[in-house]
Design a protein around this nucleic acid. Structure first.
Lengths: 170, 170
DNA sequence: CTTCGACATGTCAGTGATGGAATATCCACC
DNA sequence: GGTGGATATTCCATCACTGACATGTCGAAG
């Protein structure tokens, strides 16, 4: 349900087309709220129907540029201050942990090692992203860095936990 | 897709009915892979159709008791050692952080404070669950504690981050 | 002048989760 | 003997996400 607010948020900075927004998603919001092209175009049309955005310009190649309406901004601000519902956390990894008794110790260790690796790799990617972000000056940079820090801390937590868990198995 | 494996995993410990499994989900797996009643019964029927479980007994009130088949166990073990796909992380909280410029500092702080509170409350709940688990001896206790530790660490990470983030706003 | 890559939008089938309603049985208690 | 609560299963409408397919335009490079 928040894809809608992600779009409104990006459009609040500046008008953009679906294509623009798709790229913005891939860069800025990729780690926070990934979305596919089909979702995005569909939601844009629904947003326009609901009067939260307007088509402010049409360009070549059927390009439609969207702008948030007053109503859209209102909706966005209301969402920002509404209580954040935390979505139920499903974790395939932890599910496997639950059933570790069905595997050998070696197999269990492999599962944990895989996660540790992934977490460190992800951490590195985020560190690169951070240095990249620090150079350029975008509208979402400083807030983006706060969100990014969450990812970094989470990755650290994950590999520390994975190591600890592997010890527990012994 | 892993609901299937969650069910197989629980049934691998002992045969059970849908109703039993629902209760097991609510207690043991609630924090790891929540599932609703409609999902669960549906998946059980599909599992039986696929030959991964058998109806091993029928009791009063149309109760059907399911048991994993050899094939089901095979599937479960294959899943355990297969690479764990990490599902894309959508976070409504981080999305809000991205758009903090649209809110007042006060509002942003409130969002962060709410999360900090939730994280500490969740941490407390998990601590209680841990002491409860440590007393009783279940089949999944020791692995459950490893999974639970993940939740604890994550909650700690979250409130530390929320505090840090609030400082950044100043 | 053609072709290739980037730009740009739309649609659809399949899958899985949500939430609620409908149905029925058994048991304990009054 | 009737009622309420726990046991137990099934179905359905709705919604969101995925991944793929379909369609078409423009600009630059050769």
């Amino acid at each position: 349900m928040s894809l809608r607010h992600a779009l409104l948020g990006l459009l609040a900075d500046r008008p953009a087309s679906g294509y623009d927004l798709l790229k913005l998603f891939d860069t800025s919001l990729a780690h926070v709220w990934p979305a596919t092209q089909s979702q995005l175009y569909g939601e844009l049309n629904r947003l326009a129907e609901a009067g939260l955005v307007d088509v402010s310009a049409e360009g070549p190649r059927r390009r439609k540029e969207y702008t948030v309406t007053e109503e859209g901004l209102k909706e966005l601000r209301a969402w920002l201050v509404a209580p954040t519902q935390q979505q139920p956390q499903r974790s395939e990894l932890l599910l496997k942990v639950f059933f570790f008794d069905l595997a050998t110790d070696e197999q269990a260790r492999a599962v944990l090692a895989e996660r540790e690796q992934r977490a460190t790799a992800y951490h590195e990617r985020l560190m690169e992203l951070r240095t990249a972000l620090e150079d350029e000056e975008g509208p979402f940079t400083s807030n983006g860095l706060i969100a990014l820090e969450y990812g970094l801390r989470r990755a650290e937590m994950e590999w520390e936990w994975a190591r600890w868990a592997a010890e527990q198995l012994g």
